[in-house]
Simulated scan of single mutants.
Amino acid sequence: MSASAQESQYKNVVVIGAGVIGLTTALKIQEKGGYKVTVVAETLPSDPKTVRYTSLWAGAHHVSHAEGDPKQQKIDQDTFKVMWELSAPGGEAEQCFMRLPQEEYYVDHRDTQLNWMPDFKEIPKESLKEGTHWGVQFTTFTIDTPRYVNYLLSRFIARGGTVVRGSVQHLQQIAEGGPNAFSFNLAGRTVVDAIVVCAGIGARSLGGVEDKDVYPLRGQVVLIRAPWIKFGRTISNNTTGLWTYVIPRRSGDVILGGTKLEDDWYPVARPETTTDILERVFALCPELVSPEIRAQRAPTVDDIRPLIIEEGCGFRPGRRGGIRLETEWIEGKKGKIPVVHNYGHGGQGFQSSWGSANIAFELLEKALAEQK
């Protein structure tokens, strides 16, 4: 069989975006078989950290915020199942995860949607943190985000996927020329059978999409070195919008946060916000101070500062109306082609990644069946 005949057996799919959603969706499609998937993205996981690539900044633990939305809860549960297997001792991605006990405290609401988590139970009232009126604990995992997205990328390539660096300005560029339009090493124009948009915050300005319901949820974090922390702890306050969390990684690094500021585009860490984060996490978790210091004297928030590795921020891709998972059609090189949208995950990208990829794949298969 000739190379061209072999190629014709595959559906050519282009995924726009190489964040956790783009890579997971591309991998889901590629591993199904019968597809030749190309990811086109301006920034890749192996690049230096930048505010334009949010996935590297995420603290990332699996704690669902579905809060009564059955569709979102299924998405989160489907993702948990996949990641729980990946995080298993001896699993292929074990080093990307850290299984641990998690404590969740609530200032102004009760989240009863977490009772499906392993080892779930309520925290006794006498053990609640000051200012909170309810709490739960369970077993979950945290994700070393830089390591994990690079794992996804390498697994995608190993399964036959292709990655092209390019800044897509309009869907028409892909519809007409395919990934070849962004690579001098590829000759001619590729017939594209479908496009999957996983552009995150970029969906706001991407031509052919331009979704004005997309907005930034600016998250500032502090990364410290504290390998003695083997648990996760969070306080949620819906009234103020403050979200205080301690998320350790297997590496011994710990992500401290955070903020959730709508329509805030400031691209670097604010010193006053770092101070606020440190004060909040110290009140929540004084164990962040090294055991040696705590054994000698009463710790203070200033004892955390020498542990800081870096400060930074990312723009979580919020969307009014929630995740966009739907199909539309545009003109391609040889007729109409489907565009499957999978973006707008806000601060839930990692914990929604596999579940939303499942839905995007179902939409893709349905659209291609209609295309015949």
Rank of each mutant, 00 (worst) to 15 (best):
P70M: 11
R204C: 08
G33D: 06
L86C: 03
N12C: 08
E311H: 06
G166P: 08
H109G: 04
E362S: 13
Y105H: 15
T43G: 02
V14D: 01
E370A: 13
V37M: 01
A93G: 05
A5W: 06
F184M: 11
T79V: 04
T140E: 01
T140R: 00
R319K: 09
E262D: 15
H109Y: 15
V222L: 10
R52S: 13
A187V: 15
T300H: 03
W329H: 10
I277V: 15
A226N: 06
R270Q: 12
R147Y: 05
A187C: 09
I123R: 01
L223P: 00
I201G: 02
T145I: 04
K372R: 13
E85H: 10
L223R: 10
G131C: 10
N150F: 05
G346S: 11
K36N: 14
R155H: 10
I174M: 08
D303C: 07
L114I: 14
Y266T: 14
K366G: 12
D78Y: 02
I201S: 02
R305V: 15
R159V: 13
H345L: 11
E104M: 14
P48G: 12
K333V: 11
E365T: 04
W84I: 04
Q113C: 12
I174Y: 06
W243M: 07
R270W: 08
I16M: 09
L114G: 08
P299I: 12
V164D: 05
H62E: 07
K212R: 14
L153F: 06
Y53S: 10
N185P: 00
V107L: 09
R324S: 04
T259F: 09
I235A: 04
E210W: 02
R155N: 09
T239S: 11
K32A: 12
S8D: 13
V39W: 00
I235M: 07
E272C: 11
G90Q: 04
I143G: 00
T190A: 14
G177M: 07
R270P: 05
L307S: 08
V339K: 00
Y10W: 10
H62C: 10
V246G: 03
H170Q: 11
A18W: 04
W116C: 08
R297E: 09
F156A: 02
D144K: 00
S154G: 07
L100G: 07
R52K: 15
G258E: 08
